[in-house]
Design a protein around this nucleic acid. Structure first.
Lengths: 252, 252
DNA sequence: CGAGACGTTGAACCTATTCAACACTGGTGG
DNA sequence: CCACCAGTGTTGAATAGGTTCAACGTCTCG
């Protein structure tokens, strides 16, 4: 197991099971699998399904931009979506990496609203779209879903706060390993002894997550590789030893 | 108007109108004034009021600590509350400064949960406390309140994300002015031409908000004072020219 | 009045950024 | 099919911004 011999081609999954346009029936199956809608009855799901529009995106396409009018809630049915925000200086900050079952967009705010961030398809993606007002009605009709949504939002706020803590207190190295762990938890896929982060992931992406520069990420990953904690190549990172990386991140 | 002559004593309001224990009736009046409960009927408010316990805190007292079991939702009836998180290195990060009408604590998560942050009374404070389960029921009964809560959480997540952006992209100086503006919006009180941040506010508090050190805050405030943008003294800051400070923060 | 917390300022140091040069990969067009 | 080229990644050296450490001044409260 010599980590000095990285794979040639990316080990990241790039296949896509659904065609761009799914049938109502297929969508219903997708919906029923989403953790977000878990606990709802068949009837409820069918009801919600009929109120969705479904969109297909190619890698690199934008779903919406910061400042666009925000009239929809989106749910990832398949694929990965980058949620980011632009700085004045042209740099980007990666707020979240969304995968199957995650929602984004405008939840339920009244009146005219604009998107406060940008959604960007990282891979080919199938996205369900619900009008904000319609979703508001659905929430009113399903207190269970409302509470679930609230819990998810509370969880995201907690994550954001934790990241604030790290940005203001931890050195770059530990912010990077922390980002890796977060991604591994969310997108991790076992590949033998390794845990592969199953999304195309550049040094810049990691830099935007950890609040640093691609150069610093590159240097840090080199060190981590040398220490036998990770393996990485062009557009991919895999973790050798999750436990060791956690210990490293929480050290001090 | 010579800003080289700071006030001797703090101009911050330290009076407290309510005694430690308020009557049910008085509490009802407080509740009806809270923006959080706006739009609910008299009957609903009365109903909620009866399910609240009310607590009094002295300045410096802790309401709960990170890691404590989280069984309650709290609402600030009066006073200021600091919401913070500890780092491993002993440093603190100030997540939010709460004032009348703001809620904090555990919203509605199922099962046993622990607090992920620490709540600390900055001034004398009157806090209403509702059992998490009870509040869950209230949310189910009042979809309007549920949606309002969801909107507030969405707003806080947005704030946190904006702060993440600033921490990773802006220099310390602009993060500090940004923190000042945020505080001025939330706790600002007109004092003639000045906008006073109406809470006891040390250099350390600002440092914990802006992700920097008390020394850097001190240096920066000195510069801002010299530039005629703010006035400050021991435990207080007032803004001379809000517009100019905004321009400064958003420059570049 | 004295003690301790808070605030200011200076100087040395250090981490991470910036700028730059170069290497590798993969896809495209001749 | 191969050569080229743009995007991506690596590494080095100089730089700058902020932290850290330290000393001192000032305010507040008991």
């Amino acid at each position: 197991m010599t980590e000095t011999k990285p794979r040639r081609r990316t080990p990241v999954t790039l296949t896509f099971t659904e065609p761009a346009n799914c049938s109502l029936d297929l969508r219903l199956r997708i919906l029923s699998r989403l953790p977000f809608f878990k606990g709802l009855s068949e009837q409820d799901l069918h009801d919600i399904n009929q109120r969705c529009i479904e969109l297909g995106f190619e890698p690199g396409q934008y779903i919406y931009h910061e400042g666009d009018p925000a009239e929809h809630l989106y749910v990832v049915a398949e694929g990965k979506v980058r949620l980011l925000r632009h700085t004045f200086g042209g740099r980007d900050v990666l707020l979240d990496m969304l995968t199957t079952g995650d929602f984004f967009g405008n939840l339920a705010s009244q009146g005219t609203a604009t998107h406060t961030d940008t959604a960007h398809a990282l891979t080919q993606a199938c996205i369900l779209s619900i009008n904000t007002q319609t979703f508001s009605q659905i929430l009113d009709e399903h207190p269970k879903l409302a509470r679930k949504t609230l819990e998810i939002m509370a969880g995201r706020l907690n994550d954001a706060n934790q990241r604030l803590l790290q940005l203001s207190a931890l050195p770059a190295e530990q912010r990077i390993t922390s980002a890796l762990l977060k991604l591994a938890t969310k997108l991790g896929k076992r590949k033998g002894a390794l845990t592969l982060i199953d999304a195309p992931l550049s040094r810049s992406d990691l830099a935007e997550m950890a609040g640093t520069t691609p150069e610093t990420v590159s240097r840090t990953l080199s060190q981590l590789s040398a220490a036998g904690l990770i393996e990485s190549g062009r557009q991919w990172v895999a973790i050798e030893d999750l436990k060791a990386l956690e210990d490293f991140t929480n050290a001090q």
